[in-house]
Design a protein around this nucleic acid. Structure first.
Lengths: 115, 115
DNA sequence: ATTATATACCTAAGAATATTAGGTAATAAA
DNA sequence: TTTATTACCTAATATTCTTAGGTATATAAT
């Protein structure tokens, strides 16, 4: 990623969630989508993204399919069945994390907060 | 930390914020406070905590003072002047992180969300 | 014509941060 | 007397990231 050094561990969540919504994406597309959605605040570096994609594929959460566009190769990723299950799990973890940080930082406030 | 694998990078923020509220804490106390505030969901491991405290001290954000309680030694940490400044900076980073994750996960929703 | 920017994939070295698994030592409870 | 709690610590390993490269095509700018 970049700049924001809090984001360790959330890259997988981002990838899985985007693929849930978009069905089929290639690496470069993911970096652009995240930049767009966060107004340039989060820039996923390729040195983080590609190893993460390869790991998720190796774990059986993603499958790939190569497409030829003009003379360029695109590697499209999509969720497997277990990948789809993992999305909700990761989102629940993220929500729990945020709620716990709220409890630590604003003790006695914000009883609920949803993604 | 423990269990929740999203929390990479937030330990410093937790430490600094707790010291802002409590003025003076020792390591073990911090682990217990976090466990209490999060109903046992976040357990800070000592292997993460002590190196983090030492690093913050080396960076000049914390100072220490040893106290003898019974026959035991307690090492109290408190914020330095630059440590106090760093608290708001870390909290702003955390808020930005959460807002950006909201934008990615709930595009078009939740325009604001405060800590 | 050439250089820079964008698209599109990738890896390797190093830093940062965490987990796991120890060690030391006192006190208090079973 | 053994276990649990308090209280500090470190070292090996794992994970995840940044930084800094490399390859290659297409397109826009000088």
């Amino acid at each position: 990623m970049s700049n924001n050094n809090l984001i360790k561990g959330s890259l997988q969540t981002i990838i899985l969630k985007l693929l849930e919504e978009n069905d089929k994406m290639y690496g470069y597309e993911i970096t652009q989508k995240v930049k767009e959605l966060t107004a340039g605040e989060i820039k996923i570096t390729e040195g983080a993204l590609y190893p993460a994609l390869h790991k998720l594929e190796a774990e059986g959460l993603l499958t790939t399919e190569i497409q030829q566009v003009d003379n360029r190769v695109r590697k499209y990723y999509s969720l497997t069945k277990s990948g789809k299950k993992e999305v909700s799990s990761k989102l629940a973890e993220l929500q729990a994390f945020v709620e716990n940080m709220q409890r630590i930082i604003n003790p006695g406030l914000n009883p609920d907060l949803k993604f």
